[in-house]
Nucleic acid binder design. Structure first.
Lengths: 231, 231
DNA sequence: GACTCGCCTTGACCGATATCAAATCGGTGA
DNA sequence: TCACCGATTTGATATCGGTCAAGGCGAGTC
């Protein structure tokens, strides 16, 4: 499933440009760690001691207000990086949505290594720029889209990111897939309430746009209709 | 006002770590350009030919839907970078909010230079990570905050970013400042309508929290109240 | 099978914010 | 000074999505 069996070694996206000796060094630094579904990885307002590379599973990045409102500000799939290298602390907490395996680095070690290996920093920069773009288009969704548009956009994004096993393998958009999110978590991604999410799902089902074989599974029956709804 | 009179040379935040020869090389590549208030710099869906460094002024990054809804997804102040190095095209358009001066690089030149100068890439990575953090906390605002909370958060952010001349010099939060945004643009930042923005401003004024000496000027009378409202 | 516990769906209602419309303000040029 | 025009404010009303409150369904467990 994962492209990275020995932590970082096989992760082509990250390691391209690193020579064998460098990969070996990274490998020594990193430690594998399993995180059960629902378990946290880095606490909000923590000192952000960790940088991690996702090997398998899906994790959420969230921020919340004092009174308990939560917003999911990012989702990490296999090969994504988590954490905040270089000094500043990140304000987001990380919680596994599915059972996950990650490759964890002490931030200081990682920082030092990265600074000595420009190719790695370049990869990180490219990824961070891509993530920023994704995040910005999500701002459009949060600020300006209606509930039906949000749901349609979300389903299309999921179908692009997931295959029918729930993993982030890309073979073109999946027709049927298994959501790593509960209804509440979908609501937290889209800035909606659980009831609104539920009603919109039901409406799409009644309109013949999707099928819901089980609570976590979605099958897209009419992709063009979804695209039109997404706006 | 600007910390950068000869384009990049004096911009300490970017140039730290570069030697004089490197700075000279960057300087040769960059060309200064003036952008009038309301003028665009890079069009949406363009090939994103430019990378630029803001010298003076404020610019907005926006995405919009086909039917004309607009969301401001970022704001660039002096010393900020604009554009999307390394291949991918950016989906955001850039428009000056005030008269602005920027230092423009052809993207290909910039990419090549950056790849040959790891220190510059490192700075870019740090900035991009910081911008990603800011963007993520803005997602919280868009998805989960109420209109009064949005307005209060916005005013506090402005007071941190601006001094009373409208420039991005930091001497602690400003008590009084001049907004680079019209009411419509404030609405586009916060995911609200112009009417809601106006009503909330009026309410804060009536409650004695702020004063509005003119359409573009704001004076904060009761900062603790604003902080409390921001949530 | 039936009990239980979470999660999800559904329904009734409400309220915050959008929408539509009109009045007012402030700056600009004659 | 006055007329004009766009920006802003204010008012009246509509609506989407939130809130509150029941049910229902499915997966374990006994």
């Amino acid at each position: 499933m994962s492209s990275c069996e020995t932590c970082v070694v096989r992760n082509r996206a990250i390691c391209a440009g690193l020579d064998n000796q460098e990969i070996a060094a990274l490998n020594t630094m990193g430690r594998r760690r399993s995180v059960g579904a629902g378990e946290p990885l880095i606490w909000e307002d923590d000192d952000s001691l960790l940088v991690a590379n996702v090997i398998e599973g899906v994790l959420k990045l969230t921020t919340s207000t004092e009174d308990g409102r939560e917003q999911i500000v990012g989702v990490a799939y296999p090969s994504d990086f988590i954490g905040r290298p270089f000094g500043q602390t990140s304000r987001a907490s990380v919680v596994a949505l599915t059972d996950a395996r990650v490759c964890v680095f002490a931030r200081n070690d990682f920082d030092r290594f990265a600074r000595e290996h420009p190719e790695l920093e370049h990869k990180l920069l490219e990824r961070t720029l891509a993530e920023l773009d994704r995040t910005r288009s999500w701002m459009m969704l949060l600020g300006r889209k209606t509930a039906p548009e949000k749901i349609a956009t979300f389903l299309l994004e999921m179908s692009d990111r997931l295959d029918d096993t729930g993993c982030a393998v890309k073979l073109g958009p999946a027709r049927r897939f298994s959501l790593p999110f509960s209804r509440q978590q979908v609501a937290d991604v889209l800035g909606l309430t659980i009831e609104t999410v539920s009603r919109q799902f039901t409406k799409l089902k009644n309109d013949g746009v999707i099928e819901l074989p089980s609570r976590r599974e979605v099958e897209i029956l009419d992709r063009p209709a979804l695209v039109a709804l997404a706006g």
